[in-house]
Design a protein around this nucleic acid. Structure first.
Lengths: 209, 209
DNA sequence: CCCGATACTGAGCGAGCGCTTAGAGTGCCC
DNA sequence: GGGCACTCTAAGCGCTCGCTCAGTATCGGG
């Protein structure tokens, strides 16, 4: 996690766990292609081409095209959950923890927009079994954010009439960053993260710095 | 606009302008199929089948499959813009107008989730020319919301450090409703509209009722 | 009563899809 | 140095895609 792990897009590579090297290259190529064109509009020939291999090479490392999407989705959701768990478990007031969770979650969606797009918007392209597994991870993501908001309400720091609804809105706001964020736009991921943390603290009626 | 215009899903039919009848049936079938499976995963045979016609019948009324998406997208964006213009032009304080804009915009995204999904998430499936036209409509949508927020800031009713960023966040929040809203879930479109209007007033630091 | 215009169908074309298979190249252990 | 496991390619199979076209049913106007 210490050495250079950036692509041309300035995106961190959380794919170090994928081995061997050829399998990782194929997976990274698939992430880029799925993010650009969508899962169904991407061909296995396109993925293999981006990885500098023949179309048949894909099937040495993955059983089907859908298995690629499944692995991308699971690793991505685990990373997102990890980010929220880290923010939720840190020391500090509920407001500080919520601001940390939102800003880091948003930074991940903006900075790793290619990955986040696939993770958040291609869920319906998975088969029933794989989709059910991913939905389980999403429930854990939801629970993580709700727990912070409930802490703030219990501590009297937040004013939230509808905790489940507000949790949903906060997550929805963060996730949609992957749809509109433009790497060549005027905002850096850090700027959006700070703006959104402030907006979310307003939404829960927390005292802001 | 007065008589029964509801589908089985309880969704208003804004497709009265599409004639003749067979062309409208094909377009409604395309909206449902695109919303369920996405544009690229939908076949022309599927669209024609849902409309109770042969695959070839589609090409009597539309030149290509993409023309169907283009027409759906344009009509949908015009409807969305119309909703925001109506709310923005009504009488009342900036807070009342913003709450009205958000709640009606959200009701449209939740109640007409099938249409909204296609309109908001299949933009990239359009060709360059059609996409450029739709992006123009989106800019007008953005301008409409920003104008209300600017009015509130000018009147001293709102506290918004970053008007463009907050406008983006408000629209993003509303649009993402089309992704997660579930017709069989616990919330009605009206409940989500009210919740979101309140959350947005908090985001802009407006006095709330 | 027939005629042309309109709306539609059945059959199918060329292309590109996901995926398979036979075989070639490469390195490692004995 | 020979055998073997692993990795990759060239070729192509069966299928479905978007779309086309010749032909049929229907119907209002003369």
């Amino acid at each position: 996690m210490s050495t250079a792990e950036e692509t041309a897009g300035g995106e961190l590579q959380p794919w170090a766990e994928v081995t061997p090297d050829a399998a990782r290259r194929l997976l990274v190529a698939a992430v880029e292609a799925f993010a650009e064109r969508g899962y169904h509009a991407t061909t296995t020939r396109d993925i293999a081409g981006r990885a500098g291999m023949s179309p048949a090479a894909l099937y040495i490392h993955y059983k089907t095209k859908e298995e690629l999407l499944h692995r991308i989705s699971r690793i991505g959701h685990e990373k997102a959950l990890d980010i929220l768990r880290t923010a939720g478990a840190r020391e500090g007031s509920p407001a500080e923890r919520l601001a940390d969770a939102v800003s880091s979650f948003v930074r991940w969606h903006a900075g790793g927009r290619t990955t986040a797009r696939v993770v958040q918007y291609e869920l319906d392209s998975l088969g029933a079994d794989a989709r059910a597994e991913i939905i389980g991870l999403r429930r854990q993501v939801d629970a993580e954010v709700r727990a912070i908001i409930e802490d703030g309400v219990a501590a009297g720091d937040f004013d939230v009439p509808d905790v489940p609804g507000t949790t949903l809105a906060v997550l929805s706001l963060c996730i949609d960053v992957a749809r509109w964020f433009n790497v060549n736009g005027p905002r850096t991921p850090e700027m959006v993260g700070d703006l959104y943390a402030d907006l979310v603290l307003r939404m829960v009626g927390a005292p802001r710095p």
